[in-house]
């Protein structure tokens, strides 16, 4: 069976693309899937840091593309999981060092041997984004419950929808604070879905554990860890109900009931 290439992108920077890619990769690996994570953020690599693999890097994606090493040599094996590998980005080059064709070629070479190929995209809508999106079978849009992140997500979805070959797009809402949503101070899941009108595949709650584990380069535990595991299961085709979503939408329903009068 051929593997699926999933690109993780957002438009806006700092919403948690890299954290999502890393934790999703580790969650899928814990489900005994064969995973490759590719850092397509050339020049600003940090997927290796969040996965705790910085000290094992010898070659990178640009070395592969320019023929200085084989794909196999650039793959960094994760210490915690038998079938999790990382292809790191180059620190010294910029995004123009690789092309969409390069990305497609790399993905094609890996597809037969892995279940999921996760591509971590740089922020923005320029060259690096086009590279990251080129090999994708599907796209995960990561957004935060704030208006500017949602606006940028909308723009990105529009670009992907009008791409030569439209790619299926699903949404991950990161850093949701259910307390603030309940008080009406933060966009709710329903608000975001109502605006973006794409399918939701994951809701990650705000969780201090994420920062701690990212700095240590390990998978996050706690509520966010559970949410990443649920996200991984849904991507694998399992039906997993949304935990935090139900609470907020029930509250919303009450609020609507009163406000419509």
């Amino acid at each position: 069976m051929s593997g699926r290439v999933i690109t993780v992108t957002s438009g806006k920077g700092g919403v948690g693309k890299t954290t999502t890619t890393a934790n999703l990769a580790m969650a899928l690996a814990s489900l005994e899937k064969r995973i490759i994570a590719i850092d397509a953020d050339i020049g600003l690599r940090n997927l290796d840091l969040v996965m705790g693999l910085e000290n094992r890097i010898v070659y990178d994606l640009v070395d592969v593309v320019e023929g200085r090493c084989t794909l196999r040599q650039a793959m960094v094996k994760h210490k915690g999981y038998p079938y999790l590998y990382l292809i790191p980005a180059s620190q010294t080059r910029d995004k123009t060092a690789i092309t969409p064709q390069n990305m497609r070629a790399v993905a094609m070479e890996l597809k037969d041997s892995y279940d999921f190929i996760l591509v971590d995209s740089p922020a923005g809508i320029e060259w690096g984004f086009k590279n990251a999106i080129a090999p994708a079978d599907e796209v995960l849009i990561v957004t935060n419950p704030d208006v500017s992140a949602v606006r940028d997500a909308d723009r990105i979805i529009g670009l992907i929808e009008t791409h030569d070959v439209p790619i299926p797009v699903r949404l991950v809402i990161n850093r949701l604070k259910s307390g603030m949503v309940r008080k009406g101070e933060m966009l709710s899941v329903d608000d975001i879905i109502g605006l973006l009108s794409i399918r939701l595949v994951g809701v990650i709650p705000e969780d201090e554990n994420v920062l701690r584990s990212s700095n240590q380069g390990v998978a996050v535990a706690g509520p966010a860890g559970q949410a990443f595991l649920n996200l991984a299961r849904r991507l694998d085709g399992e039906q997993v109900p949304f935990q935090s979503l139900e609470i907020t939408s029930l509250m919303d329903r009450f609020r609507r009931l009163f406000n419509n009068r």
């Binding site: 909308d154 723009r155 605006l195």
Partner: peptide, 25 residues
Amino acid sequence: RRTLRGGRVIRTPGHVVVVGDVNPG
């Protein structure tokens, strides 16, 4: 016949009918 998402600009001397949403931006 699609939702106009943020960043899109439609400019025409005629009428415009959108079957879908016109999002902020």
